[in-house]
Amino acid sequence: MSEIKAELNNCLYFTSNKLSRMIGKMADQEFKITGLSPTYAFLLSIVNKKEGIVQKEIGEILHMSSSTITRFIDKLENQALLKRVKKGKNSLIYLTEKGKQKQAEIDQAWENLHQRYEKIIGSKEAEIVENINKISNQIEKEVK
């Protein structure tokens, strides 16, 4: 059994997925205060920073397909957190007043999550994130 674990732990694919699952679990726990998953919270935060953003740009920022972004926006619109405004062929996305009020909870959840990371990995979080982003960007160039 330890041979299998050692083999898997030497595999970038396995290890990055394991990290993603663990971080995802922590994030889900911290985001319970918002009533949203972390990804939905990211989407709201993006719109909060850029009111009138188009769906395509949200998809590019989150590295998600248009159909996934559409489903997310539909759900957030049904919760009265976002609204779409048609402009030509595009739908511009805006926060509702309820969506704007949700941002404080989202910010608190992010802060809680970052504090939790820091307790575990120390103050090297920024360095680790920078390295993961460099690797992600290099791999992204190859898989496009």
Results as ranks from 00 to 15, higher is better:
residue 13 Y to E: 03
residue 87 K to F: 08
residue 6 A to S: 11
residue 103 Q to I: 15
residue 50 K to F: 03
residue 127 E to D: 09
residue 131 N to V: 01
residue 33 I to F: 01
residue 52 G to D: 08
residue 10 N to V: 02
residue 32 K to E: 15
residue 87 K to R: 07
residue 69 I to Y: 05
residue 12 L to I: 08
residue 57 E to C: 08
residue 35 G to V: 10
residue 33 I to C: 04
residue 112 N to T: 06
residue 97 E to Q: 11
residue 81 L to D: 01
residue 27 A to C: 01
residue 17 N to S: 08
residue 89 K to C: 04
residue 11 C to Y: 13
residue 61 I to F: 03
residue 123 S to C: 05
residue 112 N to R: 11
residue 123 S to R: 09
residue 45 S to C: 03
residue 55 Q to W: 01
residue 31 F to Q: 06
residue 59 G to T: 15
residue 62 L to Q: 06
residue 118 E to H: 05
residue 94 Y to L: 11
residue 30 E to H: 08
residue 131 N to Y: 04
residue 3 E to L: 05
residue 44 L to W: 03
residue 86 K to A: 05
residue 38 P to H: 05
residue 126 A to M: 01
residue 47 V to T: 08
residue 36 L to Q: 10
residue 32 K to Y: 12
residue 142 E to G: 01
residue 86 K to I: 08
residue 5 K to R: 07
residue 29 Q to F: 04
residue 82 L to D: 10
residue 115 Q to F: 08
residue 94 Y to S: 03
residue 67 S to G: 03
residue 124 K to Y: 08
residue 122 G to Q: 10
residue 102 K to F: 02
residue 126 A to Y: 02
residue 93 I to A: 11
residue 140 E to L: 10
residue 128 I to P: 00
residue 80 A to V: 12
residue 117 Y to A: 01
residue 111 E to Y: 10
residue 65 S to Y: 12
residue 77 E to G: 03
residue 31 F to I: 03
residue 127 E to M: 07
residue 78 N to Y: 04
residue 117 Y to R: 00
